[in-house]
């Protein structure tokens, strides 16, 4: 292992941790109530009082960015984790058992893959009514087939290893084998994928909120702040700019963690 990996890991992990902490402690960190309207102080650029300026309702943008992080990161982390819990098992079953199980699960995930991710989100959100939960479900469903594919192909490789057959011969149950032999062997690429897909999920959340389908107003999320900011982009670009910067930073941080993890697992191709 060489120095650049450590550096990247440290920066990425540090940045991710910092953002999560900022979001978690936003009620104590935010200088003002993110919902407090004040039309006299609306559409101000950054000032000494409002570091990130105010939006068209006169709400403090810094406070909204901090609170928005709670929603955006919560959805961004929760959805892929839920998706991984379901998808990894489905993929392992498909890869391990093969046959009909494999065919049905693969066809189902191919089917889901053939929907454009965003449109799937739009339809789920419209059917369930847009909310925090629908956003989580929509993103989890969208990522599900990707976890299935990944864990399926990784399992197929492990399945061919002699020790699996040895375990079967020794009379161990399939579930036990999958849990004790398959899962630990495919965990590496899955953890990498998880951190990269957290980054994807944050972007997706932003896109869904941008289309008006994520967390509901007045609760800020980074995506809906950009959406609201879009209305007056010429006059007051600050809310959209800061929210966009926050999304970029968060996605960057998780991508860096993912990259670093990947390099750890596969030092040959690493920098």
């Amino acid at each position: 292992m060489n120095v650049p990996i450590n550096k990247l890991t440290m920066i990425g992990t540090g940045l991710s941790a910092l953002l999560i902490l900022l979001a978690a402690f936003s009620p104590w960190l935010a200088p003002l109530d993110p919902l407090d309207q004040s039309f006299i102080a609306a559409n101000q650029g950054p000032t000494a009082e409002h570091w990130f300026g105010t939006d068209s309702f006169g709400r403090d943008v810094l406070s909204r960015v901090l609170f928005g992080g709670r929603i955006s990161l919560a959805i961004g982390i929760l959805a892929p984790v839920l998706s991984a819990l379901a998808g990894v098992w489905a993929g392992m079953l498909a890869g391990y058992l093969g046959g009909w199980t494999d065919r049905v699960l693969s066809r189902a995930s191919d089917l889901l893959m053939s929907f454009p991710t965003l449109l799937l989100g739009v339809m789920i959100a419209a059917a369930l009514g847009p909310s925090f939960q629908s956003a989580v479900i929509a993103i989890a469903v969208a990522l599900f087939p990707r976890f299935v594919r990944l864990s399926r192909s990784a399992t197929q490789v492990v399945r061919r290893e002699p020790f699996i057959d040895a375990s079967i011969a020794a009379g161990r149950g399939h579930l036990s084998i999958m849990l004790h032999h398959v899962l630990p062997n495919i965990a590496g690429p899955l953890v990498v994928a998880l951190s990269l897909w957290i980054a994807t999920a944050i972007r997706l959340e932003a896109a869904l909120s941008f289309l008006g389908l994520g967390a509901q107003p007045p609760t800020p999320s980074w995506g809906n702040m950009i959406r609201d900011g879009m209305s007056d982009l010429v006059g007051d670009p600050w809310p959209a700019a800061f929210a966009g910067a926050a999304i970029t930073l968060a996605v960057l941080a998780f991508n860096m963690v993912g990259d670093a993890l990947r390099d750890l697992l596969d030092p040959e191709t690493a920098a």
């Binding site: 609306a42 559409n43 879009m230 209305s231 007056d232 982009l233 010429v234 006059g235 007051d236």
Partner: peptide, 30 residues
């Protein structure tokens, strides 16, 4: 349908007339 696109197009002169937006402060900034 997007207020941003409509406003930007109007500011730039791509359209001569638009239906406005109901966003506080929008008219003043336009």
């Amino acid at each position: 349908p997007e207020t941003a696109a409509r406003t930007l197009a109007f500011v730039k002169g791509d359209v001569d007339m638009i239906e406005g937006a109901t966003v506080p402060g929008w008219q003043a900034s336009l």
